[in-house]
Write a protein that binds this DNA or RNA. Sequence first.
DNA 1: CCTACCGATCGGTAGG
DNA 2: CCTACCGATCGGTAGG
Lengths: 197, 197
Amino acid sequence: MGKLKVPKNGNRKDLIVKAGAALFREKGFGAASMRDLAENLGIEAASLYNHIRSKNEILESVCFNVANRFNLHLDEIETGTLSPIKKIETILRFHIQQMIDNYEEVMVSDREWKHLDEPYRSNFHTQRRNYRKRLATIIEDGIKKGEIKKIDAPTAVVILLHSVTGIESWHRSTAKISGAELEDNMVMIMIDGLRSK
Amino acid sequence: MGKLKVPKNGNRKDLIVKAGAALFREKGFGAASMRDLAENLGIEAASLYNHIRSKNEILESVCFNVANRFNLHLDEIETGTLSPIKKIETILRFHIQQMIDNYEEVMVSDREWKHLDEPYRSNFHTQRRNYRKRLATIIEDGIKKGEIKKIDAPTAVVILLHSVTGIESWHRSTAKISGAELEDNMVMIMIDGLRSK
DNA sequence: CCTACCGATCGGTAGG
DNA sequence: CCTACCGATCGGTAGG
């Protein structure tokens, strides 16, 4: 038998970041303590610092992991040949899927990014603004083509994005509908709301 | 000249609660300190405690002031004779107005209520659930009457409510549209999204 | 990964 | 409304 490598190296940090996302979502970044986090992982607080440099670094990992995922997806969609309204629908469905599969990271990056230290905070803020501008451009394109009703595009973007965070409460609700039903309900409401009649 | 009464009595607490709402919105409840708050008001931290009992009491005031306002408005609408879709539109417009006039308190009550001490936290949570249930009932009524498309009512409620919090970014944006335009844009998207075709 | 500990800051109180 | 101060807890480090 060949020697079994034990590569769990970067792995420990990923575990801490994941547990950090869960804790930050539950308590908020400011109210979450490193001692809490360590206890959730079954180790002492001091031991965390063998894998991460600071509490803020955990937040950085969460925020930029999420931002990268959304930026990459938008890159794909933007250069595609879908109609503007179909592009928006695809992006909306991606946001919903991310919230279903990954909602603790997504919520933390959405709500707690302001606690990022500089220069990360400014960097993240810029990425966020650019992402929204690119969505607004797609919507304006759809208005020009007559597919989307004449609305203020930046307003439509914030409504669209914030409506998705409503899914948070779906996660812990009892007697819930399936993820696919949830997605279709959201698309029915939001895309019909945008579409010109 | 009659003596000028100086009644600024309950007034001092209101001032602290208002400044608290602004600070809690900006930093989050956990990361906001009483020393910060005192500095914003031009006094020492210890002096705050002549007007309030605790940091948590400020949060209680903010959350229950907001909850009372929304509950009272819903009481009025619920017993009125408007059609279901018109009721939802009126409630949506009220939420938007509250966000425009009063957004720091509204945002804090929405985001930070989980930091409430018991029994306030449970009380608030129950009120929140009941409010959403009452909205869902109106939507279900609208579906039965054929005014609203066949969607999952609780899902529609969370989408509706969360879409309004998107207005937050409108507040500090430059080159912004007017409050009335914002309101009409939101109603166009969300109410058309709900309406059966 | 742990024990032991640091300086800073927290919410809040005593006493005037 | 202030000065002075409390015990608790925080993020993080030293040293092994």
